[in-house]
Simulated assay, not measured.
Amino acid sequence: MHLSPAGTDALVARLRAAGCVFAEDEARLLAEAAGSAGELDALAGRRVEGEPLEHLLGTVEFCGLRVAVGPGVFVPRQRTAVLVARAVEAARAAPGRRPVAVDLCCGSGAVGLALATAVDLAELHATDVDPAALPWARRNLGPVGGRVHGGDLYDALPGRLRGRVDVLVANAPYVPTGALGLLPPEARLHEPAGALDGGGDGLDVHRRIAAGAPAWLAPGGVLLAEVGEEQAPVLVGVLARAGLRATAAVPEEDGTTVVSGVRGPAAGG
Rank of each mutant, 00 (worst) to 15 (best):
A18K: 01
A31F: 08
A10D: 10
R98C: 12
G145E: 02
A122W: 04
V234P: 10
L203V: 00
E32K: 13
R263E: 07
Y174R: 01
N171V: 00
Y174H: 09
A248Y: 10
G35L: 06
A126Q: 12
A85N: 03
A170Q: 05
H2P: 11
V75S: 11
V21S: 15
V12H: 04
A137T: 03
R162A: 14
G220L: 00
G19Q: 05
A27N: 03
A34L: 14
A172H: 10
P158N: 10
G19A: 09
A249Q: 09
P131N: 02
P5V: 08
L83T: 06
D204A: 15
P251W: 10
G243W: 09
L134G: 00
L180A: 11
E89L: 12
A132R: 11
L239D: 00
E39I: 03
E253F: 14
D41L: 15
G212F: 13
C63H: 02
G194I: 10
A94D: 07
A68V: 08
L182N: 13
R16M: 04
V205C: 10
A126P: 11
G261S: 06
D155G: 04
V148E: 09
E51Y: 04
G45E: 00
P251V: 06
P265E: 00
V129E: 14
G70H: 02
D103H: 15
G243I: 06
L134K: 00
A218M: 02
R188H: 14
V234T: 12
G96Q: 08
P173C: 03
A133I: 03
V169E: 01
D41A: 15
P233E: 08
A93N: 00
G146A: 13
G212S: 12
A133H: 05
G181R: 07
A225S: 15
A248N: 08
L3R: 09
G38Y: 08
P214Y: 08
G200K: 15
G109V: 03
E229D: 13
R208Y: 10
E61R: 04
V250L: 09
D120E: 13
L161I: 01
L161Q: 03
R47A: 05
H149T: 04
P173D: 04
G19D: 07
G146E: 11
G220Q: 00
E39Q: 12
Q231N: 01
V69P: 06
L153N: 07
R245E: 15
G163L: 03
G96K: 04
A33F: 13
A126C: 13
G255H: 12
G7L: 01
G255K: 10
L104N: 03
L183G: 03
G181F: 06
V167K: 03
G159C: 07
G150E: 13
C106M: 06
G146M: 12
T247N: 01
A31P: 10
A170G: 07
L141V: 02
R188I: 07
R207M: 06
P214N: 08
G268K: 06
D166T: 02
G237E: 09
